[in-house]
């Protein structure tokens, strides 16, 4: 497996456009404009940008929820269009997604046990006994107690729900994770615990992360490399340490200067 975890080549995504039934042309918005990125095996690439920069659209294309207008995506060395043709199951086995709002990403009418069971059954094809073992392992991996399974999503706090959502992503046994603002809805102490959990899981399971965030300090703590997006384009890509110490692009400089800091003596 020498191929990179994610390769994005010249991808463009345009929303709208085309014509209505009456032949009038629709307003088109270019959300992503010729973006090229690569995430190596075992690497964490962070994508930073402000609202409207296109980072969530990029994430949704990577997991097959949107199709690129042009350009190619390769996931674990396989073409994304080919994976999409192979069906949702093939896609889910390769790459998984963690949402920003953990509670909204869990169906309010299903127990946690049912939610975790789905990927194990559909993506991994385990039988009943095997699934029970795996669920117990998963809860252990995200440090949640065993009685979690019988309860419903609304009974959990944001941090706990995010642990459950991460367990669901782990259940697919994919090695590539797209994390879309996984900690921005959480309080700082919970955020720190989730970041810590993500780091440990990455080491333990050999995962690769594409980590999307607007918070530079969070990104610096977890990323190996950083890509800065601005209005649908990547303006700067570089190793975390270099990018913060010596930003090249004017927008990156502005972003770093705007971040509020704790001033101590």
């Amino acid at each position: 497996m020498s191929a990179a975890a994610i390769e994005i080549n010249d991808v463009t995504k345009v929303f709208g456009g085309g014509h209505t039934l009456l032949g009038r042309s629709r307003h088109a918005v270019t959300a992503i404009n010729q973006v090229s990125l690569e995430v190596g095996r075992g690497e964490t690439l962070a994508v930073v940008g402000e609202s409207g920069s296109g980072k969530s659209t990029l994430a949704r294309m990577l997991v097959g929820l949107e199709e690129p207008t042009s350009g190619t995506l390769r996931i674990g060395g396989r073409d994304a269009a080919e994976l999409r043709r192979a069906g949702a199951r093939a896609f889910g086995k390769m790459i998984q997604y963690v949402f920003q709002d953990p509670i909204a990403s869990l169906n309010p009418r299903k127990t946690i046990g049912q939610i975790l069971d789905t990927p194990l059954k559909l993506l991994c094809g385990y039988d009943g006994a095997e699934r029970q073992n795996r669920v117990a392992e998963l809860l252990d991996a995200v440090q949640m107690p065993g009685d979690t399974l019988r309860r419903y999503p609304h009974e959990f706090s944001g941090g706990q729900a995010q642990r459950i959502a991460i367990a669901r992503a782990l259940a697919a046994e994919a090695e590539i994770f797209v994390l879309d603002e996984p900690v921005s809805a959480l309080d700082v102490s919970v955020q720190a615990q989730i970041l810590l959990l993500l780091r440990d899981l990455k080491r333990h399971f050999g995962l690769s992360y594409l980590f999307i965030s607007h918070d530079l300090a969070v990104v610096e703590a977890i990323a190996d490399r950083i890509a800065v997006m601005y209005r649908g384009e990547t303006v700067e890509i570089g190793p975390a340490a270099r990018l913060f110490a010596d930003p090249q692009h004017a927008y990156t400089k502005r972003l770093i200067a705007s971040a509020p800091r704790i001033r101590k003596e």
Partner: peptide
């Protein structure tokens, strides 16, 4: 367009 619907599709549901 709820996130849990997207999540279910990523879990392999048709």
């Amino acid at each position: 367009h709820a996130e849990f619907i997207d999540a279910a599709r990523l879990s392999g549901k048709g």
